[in-house]
């Protein structure tokens, strides 16, 4: 067993990008958003056949995927011990010998994502790293607690040390077409976040149509979202490629017109290394390389890391790997 010295983890380029300040709600723009489901499905269906990364490229891309993971635990039975274990995995996501073989060091995941009560243990466990703690908020996952309590939840989570807040939108505003209400709510959340980054969960599985996903994405960016995120992981349908493509294209449109880059976070249901590669290539194709950094792209995932680890070991040794050979989080 080789010995590695402790090196400071990579600094995440969290503050290179000017934050999206938002803009006034532009309903003409919102109403012009279209999303043709069949054409979008064709695009994402053909993408895995159009782009392929092999060998060292695949290994590097998988490492990139790890750097973009929001390692997540959102369970009712979470404890400080459980969160500490997860944070240890966040610091050291891949076995040292594999990292050495790959000629790489200092890799961490993008963030650790927990409920409010677990912020403090997480912050403590990540001390000395630059791994941010993200907290789900605003009555996650349904978002139907009293509005004032939702704002207060954000404030308390920020005070507890969360530097990213994953809020959930009120789906009913989308379903009834009350875009102004959605905008106003999102504005209030953003203000409550202060300097903490706000990641807006659209819960796309509950929005009814891809067009609604596109319009909701746009309204939330207009209201100042730093990230738009697909799902809570608790809906019956979570991140899908068609939904992600619609959100990605909304992000591109917003950037083209305002000059501000908003991040993207597919979450829920992404568990295979191969899926991660497809998402990365979707980001690269539709938004460009700038969006392949953890300040603009995250996976919300809990079991994805395990599959990537096995693929990396296969890359290094040529033999297919087993789950128990990699440390649990």
């Amino acid at each position: 067993m080789s010995v590695t010295t402790e090196t400071p983890p990579n600094t995440l380029p969290l503050h290179i990008e000017a934050r999206n300040p938002g803009m006034a709600l532009d309903m003409d723009w919102v109403r012009a958003v279209q999303a043709n489901t069949s054409a979008i499905e064709r695009r994402v269906k053909s993408l895995p056949g159009r782009r392929s990364v092999k060998k060292d490229y695949q290994a590097a891309w998988l490492l990139k995927a790890i750097s973009c993971i929001d390692l997540t635990t959102l369970s009712g039975d979470d404890t400080a011990g459980r969160v500490a274990r997860l944070c240890a995995k966040a610091r050291r996501p891949v076995r040292d010998d594999l990292m050495q073989a790959l000629g790489f060091e200092g890799l961490t995941v993008g963030a650790v994502c927990v409920y409010h009560e677990m912020i403090a243990p997480a912050v403590a466990a990540l001390e000395g790293t630059n791994i941010p703690v993200a907290a789900v908020s605003t009555g996650f996952p349904a978002g139907l607690t009293p509005f004032e309590l939702r704002l207060e939840e954000i404030r308390q989570s920020v005070a507890a040390g969360a530097s990213e807040i994953d809020i959930v939108i009120s789906r009913r505003q989308v379903l009834t077409g009350d875009w102004q209400a959605l905008y106003d709510e999102m504005r209030a959340y953003r203000e409550a976040c202060g300097d903490a980054h706000i990641k807006t969960i659209l819960a796309t599985g509950e929005l009814g149509s891809l067009r609604n996903v596109g319009r909701a994405s746009l309204v939330c960016m207009m209201a100042g979202a730093d990230f738009i995120k697909t799902s809570t992981g608790k809906e019956s349908v979570n991140a899908t490629l068609p939904v992600s493509l619609v959100m990605i294209r909304a992000i591109r449109d917003y950037y083209e017109r305002t000059g501000f880059r908003v991040g993207n976070k597919p979450a829920g249901g992404i568990s295979k290394a191969k899926d991660a590669l497809v998402y990365l290539s979707l980001m690269k194709e539709e938004l460009g390389d700038r969006w392949l950094q953890p300040d603009l792209f995250r996976f919300g995932a809990s079991s994805l890391l395990g599959d990537i680890e096995r693929q990396l070991e296969h890359h290094v040794t040529g033999a297919y790997s087993a789950g128990y050979r990699h440390a649990m989080g």
Partner: peptide, 16 residues
């Protein structure tokens, strides 16, 4: 290119 360099450039590389 090393894995580390590819990690930075995020190129596709050949896939023959």
């Amino acid at each position: 290119m090393s894995v580390k360099e590819i990690f930075e450039t995020m190129e596709y590389g050949p896939a023959p």
